[in-house]
């Protein structure tokens, strides 16, 4: 099939950037979206031009490296699917496709479609862990966890840290990402000792990074490739409010 692509090109962080138009003539429907871009890039290199830079790695929907806002929707039109797992059979011959980087103040563009998502790492460093050093662990069966909570924790832990939630949110809020991690630990007995401190530290770091506020659009949940539910945001809100009231430390 034939496609017209409009792709955001930006030389580096300092460059203003612009949309550029490309024409692709032989796109097969079994191709993945990124394979389609590979084809474009091979073509560009052979023409002596610079290929389009985009983040990607595992190409099986789990590493969270791929991004791209496709026709205004992060990870494109297919539900619960990362860009690398999106296949061209979801598009029609003659379609125009707009490809832009994930947009947020906290995700500055590095080049073309590549953005810097290290803000997520810094949020994790602020408290996204259970503080147990290697070798200190008791036997795995010493603390039973109800299946219900273990499953729910897994639902939250499924987050791949791709940042689509931020990209989709008109406010560039990172609540779904932070809530997923906070909730995973809050649901497990192992996470209780640091529970209050964790939510306060992570939320505080989230704000320092310049993410916006949640206005309950639920757009994050809709584009999340792992279908992490906004109920975790509600859970985190409650955790945060309780912790603000009871925890003496001002974070």
């Amino acid at each position: 099939m034939k496609l017209t692509l409009y792709i955001w090109r930006q030389k580096n962080a300092a460059d203003k950037g612009h949309m550029e138009k490309y024409q692709l003539n032989d796109v097969m429907e079994d191709m993945s979206f990124l394979e389609m871009l590979d084809v474009l890039n091979e073509d560009l290199i052979l023409k002596g031009k610079e290929p389009v830079a985009f983040d990607h790695d595992c190409r099986e929907g789990i590493c969270g490296a791929c991004s791209l806002t496709i026709n205004g929707v992060p990870h494109g039109p297919e539900k619960a699917t990362t860009t690398c797992q999106l296949h061209m059979r979801k598009f029609k011959d003659g379609d125009s496709i707009y490809i832009e980087p994930f947009r947020a103040k906290a995700f500055p563009v590095i080049k073309d479609l590549v953005v810097d998502r290290s803000a997520f790492d810094r949020i994790m460093q602020a408290g996204g862990f259970i503080g147990v050093s290697t070798g200190n662990a008791p036997d795995a069966h010493s603390v039973p966890v109800s299946k219900k909570n273990a499953d729910l924790a897994m639902d939250a832990a499924a987050c791949i840290g791709c940042g689509a939630c931020v990209a989709a949110c008109p406010n560039a809020a990172a609540m779904l990402f932070v809530a997923a991690k906070v909730s995973q630990f809050a649901l497990l007995p192992q996470g209780q000792p640091e529970r209050k401190k964790r939510v306060l530290s992570m939320v505080s770091q989230m704000q320092k990074e310049g993410f916006g506020a949640c206005t309950n659009f639920y757009e994050c949940e809709a584009v999340c490739p792992k279908q992490v539910s906004v109920r975790f945001i509600a859970k985190m809100n409650r955790d945060y409010l309780c912790s603000r009231v009871t925890e003496a430390v001002e974070v």
Binding site: V132, A140, H141, K147, A150, A153, L188
Partner: peptide
């Protein structure tokens, strides 16, 4: 065996049975 202990302590949500064990 230590690995499993370590991971459970870190909050890795391994699959569990209804009794709460792994």
């Amino acid at each position: 065996n230590n690995i499993i202990d370590q991971c459970v302590a870190q909050g890795v949500p391994f699959a569990r049975e209804y009794g709460g064990l792994l």
